[in-house]
């Protein structure tokens, strides 16, 4: 009885001794800030920063004083928090958002053949170049939804992927997964996106898709900021730096291929500041502003498309956006 107690107790003591010594000698010294930084990172291990997961990047940014914020998914609050933890200011990149550049839902497009096989766009692409009639269009098998680490893409009932603005972090996983290259990252401040990347001419596209870019060039003509380019063999492209988000192209496009990510912010005229010069009335492309000269003008909110042309032209800073 006594001997077994002593034996077991002895083994226990010995084990405790070994553990105690190894805890001191083999201790991994970790910067405590590393853990705090890790807590602030999104934790999706998407790899967009170029490191093997969030922990590896947290280590890098903590130990390397020159490391900058490479995580495209981190939000502003977290960026500030991490700057506070590390005691230095971190330059982040401008936040981006994914936009799907195809509107060719199955109902609007034709197929070349019936595809049976793995439900993966990349696998479908290697079977005679994919079943879709348009060789540039979305295959609709949901590979982007599958690879998104933030669940920010869902396949809609229309058979096309949709980006959930609030969840998308611009990590670009979907961009590299899409075999058709139809996902593009645009600045979060951007609002308009051409839903077509086809290089087909209007004639070639006609039998394949009803909603693609037909390269008519109307958007180029209406754009007041020269932000859109189009050619016979390239769909319209919006230069996001030049785009002032007026939305004129959206209403002008005959196939409705340009869409807005969010509702336009309408404007109102501050009556006290308005001198009644009528410049706003003249520049407004939607005929939403009316009034009498030398009296405050009024914006018809129903007609306003939120283009902001009037804001830019008003000599007395009397127009502002309505923030909802």
């Amino acid at each position: 009885m006594i001997s077994s107690i002593l034996l077991l107790g002895g083994i226990g003591f010995l084990a405790a001794l070994i553990l105690g010594i190894s805890a001191v000698t083999f201790a991994v010294k970790m910067d405590p800030r590393e853990k705090e930084v890790l807590d602030q990172l999104p934790g999706a291990n998407c790899g967009a920063c170029g490191f093997a997961g969030c922990a590896a990047f947290a280590h890098e940014i903590t130990v390397n004083p020159d490391a900058q914020m490479a995580c495209p998914a981190v939000n502003e609050a977290a960026l500030e928090a991490i700057s506070g933890i590390l005691g230095r200011s971190l330059g982040g990149s401008a936040p981006l958002i994914a936009c799907i550049r195809c509107k060719g839902a199955p109902a609007e497009t034709t197929n070349r053949y019936g595809y049976v096989g793995p439900k993966d766009c990349r696998a479908a692409q290697i079977v005679a170049g994919g079943p879709k009639g348009c060789q540039y269009g979305c295959l609709g098998l949901g590979t982007c939804e599958e690879v998104c680490p933030f669940n920010a893409i869902i396949m809609g009932e229309d058979g096309l992927p949709h980006v959930i603005e609030s969840l998308c972090t611009g990590c670009a996983k979907c961009v590299s997964a899409c075999p058709r290259g139809i996902i593009q990252l645009i600045p979060r401040t951007g609002n308009y996106c051409v839903g077509c990347v086809s290089k087909d001419t209007a004639k070639e596209m006609k039998p394949l898709c009803k909603v693609g870019c037909i390269k008519c060039g109307i958007c180029v003509d209406v754009c007041p900021f020269d932000a859109i380019t189009v050619s016979k063999t390239a769909s319209a492209e919006i230069d996001q730096d030049r785009c002032q988000r007026c939305g004129l192209c959206v209403s002008a496009c005959p196939t409705g291929v340009i869409s807005a990510l969010r509702m336009p912010q309408k404007v109102r005229i501050i009556a006290e500041k308005c001198k009644g010069c009528s410049i706003c009335e003249q520049v407004c492309p939607a005929e939403a502003i009316s009034g009498k000269v030398k009296e405050p003008y009024i914006v018809n909110e129903g007609k306003c498309i939120g283009c902001g042309l009037c804001i830019a032209k008003c000599p007395s800073d009397a127009i502002e956006r309505i923030i909802s």
Binding site: G117, P118, D120, R122, A123, Q125, I126, V127
Partner: peptide
């Protein structure tokens, strides 16, 4: 479709 999977993997 094992060969299809293989072709898919080779392409990736």
């Amino acid at each position: 479709p094992i060969v299809h999977f293989v072709k898919h993997l080779k392409a990736l």
